[in-house]
Amino acid sequence: MHTMWKGTISFGLVNIPVKLHAATENKDVKLRQLHKKCQSPIKYEKVCPICEEEVGNDDLVKAYEYAKNKFVMLTEDELKELQEEQTDKAVEIVDFVELQEIDPIYFEKSYYLSPNEGGAKAYSLLRKALQETGRIGIAKMIIRSKEQLACIRVYENTLVVETIHYPDEVRNVKDVPNVPEEAETPAKELDTAKMLIDQLTASFDPEKYQDAYRTSLLELIENKKNQDETTTAKDKPTATNVTNLMEALEASLDQAKGTKPAAKEKAVKKDEPKTEEKAKQKVEKKVTKPKTVTPKKKQTKKKA
């Protein structure tokens, strides 16, 4: 059985090194939620509503909300220091009371206690003393970073810790709505109800009580498995190097296609001024430099 906690329980001058084990377990059938379209398990992510990005555990901090959207930040070191202050203290039994004095509404969760090394004798002493006096011990202890009020009693030759709620954790029964006041009850109806209770009275045998819904649900699941009414979640597609390479090549090709016309257009625009300039120069040459005609020499006739 898994050990949840190790410590020391003391009453008077007696110290008992003990181990704590969970006495109960949740037998609820856990159902997963799948995407109806592809039968894949739904993933729950922590997302910041302001930044709209997924937040990892390293980016989380703890805080107490004392008013709407008003927080007091608490560091891990501060919380750890408080826990260590309480954990270092031994679990001390402060009172012994009658079990019937505690209403069941206060009980929360049960844990088995076993003696740690060297604690068997003291463990047996406390067990025997509780059995013969019919008392239970009231103590305080730290379980999973929370200070718990607890009672220590004997259950089938084993010491058991029952964590119990603090008084301020139990809601006021006067706040329950629509509870009728005392009313006159006909004697005949009351006698009939008492007779029915007497007929149904029996010794408590927990073995005869079963969770009918859980049993039926497990049977339904097993029948569906046997009839091959099952599904397998699809593996998440992973990008391969080939796919990445093809995507890169296609993107490069698209980019090249988009830049070529622009380059040609740019080249044409660069050439245009040169062409216009040359044309202007040719015109200017025609206008400013007209052709010069050299006069012909007059020919004189020789006398005979």
Rank of each mutant, 00 (worst) to 15 (best):
Y106N: 04
Q33S: 09
L159K: 00
Q100F: 08
G134I: 07
D28V: 12
P104S: 05
Q148R: 15
T158Y: 04
K68R: 12
E53L: 12
M73C: 08
F71D: 01
I102W: 01
I152G: 00
E162V: 08
A120D: 00
I102T: 02
G118N: 03
H35T: 05
K36A: 10
Y44I: 13
S145H: 07
Q131I: 12
C38Q: 07
F96H: 00
S145R: 13
V72M: 13
K128R: 13
L99W: 06
Y166R: 14
C151W: 00
L31K: 11
N116H: 08
I142D: 11
E52Y: 05
K68W: 06
P167W: 08
I143M: 09
F96P: 03
G134E: 07
H35A: 05
A67D: 15
K30C: 03
I105G: 05
A67W: 06
G119V: 01
S110C: 07
I93H: 00
I142C: 10
D95F: 06
A150N: 05
E147I: 13
E65G: 07
E54R: 14
I143P: 03
G137L: 00
K70N: 13
P49Q: 09
P41I: 05
L60F: 06
Q131S: 08
K128I: 02
R135C: 05
L125M: 08
M141I: 08
E76P: 09
A67V: 11
D28L: 09
K27V: 11
D103A: 12
E78Q: 15
Q33P: 11
C48A: 09
N69D: 15
D168G: 04
D88A: 15
I42N: 09
E65Q: 14
D58V: 08
Y44G: 14
Y106V: 04
Y155N: 13
E156C: 02
A122S: 15
V97W: 01
R135D: 12
E98R: 10
Q100P: 04
K43E: 06
Y106D: 04
N57D: 14
L82E: 13
K80R: 14
Q131P: 00
H165D: 08
A150K: 05
C151D: 01
P104R: 02
K37F: 11
D168E: 15
K70P: 00
T163V: 02
L99E: 11
